[in-house]
Amino acid sequence: MQLIDLPLIWAVIIGFGVIMYVLMDGFDLGLGILFPFAPDEQARDVMMNSVAPIWDGNETWLVLGGAGLLAAFPLVYSIFLPALYIGVFLLLAGLIFRGVAFEFRFKARTSRYLWNWAFAVGSMIASFAQGCVVGAYIQGFETQNGVYVGGALDWLTPFTVLTGLGLMAGYALLGSTWLILKSEGYIQEWAYKITRPLLLAVLVVFAIVSAWTPFVDELVRERWFSTIEVIWIFPVLALFCAYQIFRHVGKRTEGMPFVATMGLFIFSYLGLIASRWPYVVPPNYTLWDAASAPESQLFLLLGVLFVIPIVLVYTAWSYWVFRGKVKAGVGYH
């Protein structure tokens, strides 16, 4: 029975789902954050059209992650959600608003400005809340016997506000580099212009969080400064990606800034995992503590292994279908 380490497999699946979600919903949330600052309404149309065909597919990763967490790591589910209670509500409310705004903005005429606002504010709140989740995870949770015993606003500390703002900047960066890839003319020029300041903001938060995290607890400090030096590869690679963004924006390359931004996210994410591995509910529970019964994990694994490849193929296909520039004035609607 113990030939395969089911919790480990599930950790990889859910870890993969999370980064897929962050990368994919990240750039469309980012466009929402940038929305109020766009040069004009035509630019907003292009921004929305550039993600219209794919954004809801992006969000399904979140739902899959939520349900998968309940099935595979119930302890994570039943500690994170109570601990992040208010934040989760804000996250969901934000996502609902922006989702509905997405659809109705295309159909609206006189009420369009309302949907613009709903889209922007919803995206900002959802991104900020997600950033707070990351911060709260680094901070750790106050638990007793597998139950969250902290307060309602433990997730909202100066540190998590910082990670919240940091993720907003990061998503905005994904959004602007995505827009570089998908737009042309004055809209693309605007995207180029804002990318470097956004990158700077991300790096500032990145630096503060990196300096702060090792002091959150002993284990993290030890991991970074004494045990395995090889994990320094992650921040180094992340910084290399950041440099590539900077360089390629200067060279006005279209594709590389987005690719490098994804790299920045992936390596920061791996660095984050490396600092906390194998704790999924820091500081007390590892992924093996948090796992559900093996037969339950196996039961669901069969279905998920069947569906994930299909979803990936379908996702790749829809990105392929909608490849290329979005022309101003031409909608997918």
Partner: peptide, 23 residues
């Protein structure tokens, strides 16, 4: 998300069965 936010003891206790179903 309701099960986790408001009924976390239920989520924790029943997840071996409810979790895979909802998933």
């Amino acid at each position: 998300f309701q099960f986790g936010t408001n009924w976390s003891n239920f989520a924790q206790a029943s997840s071996n069965f409810i979790g895979p179903l909802l998933s």
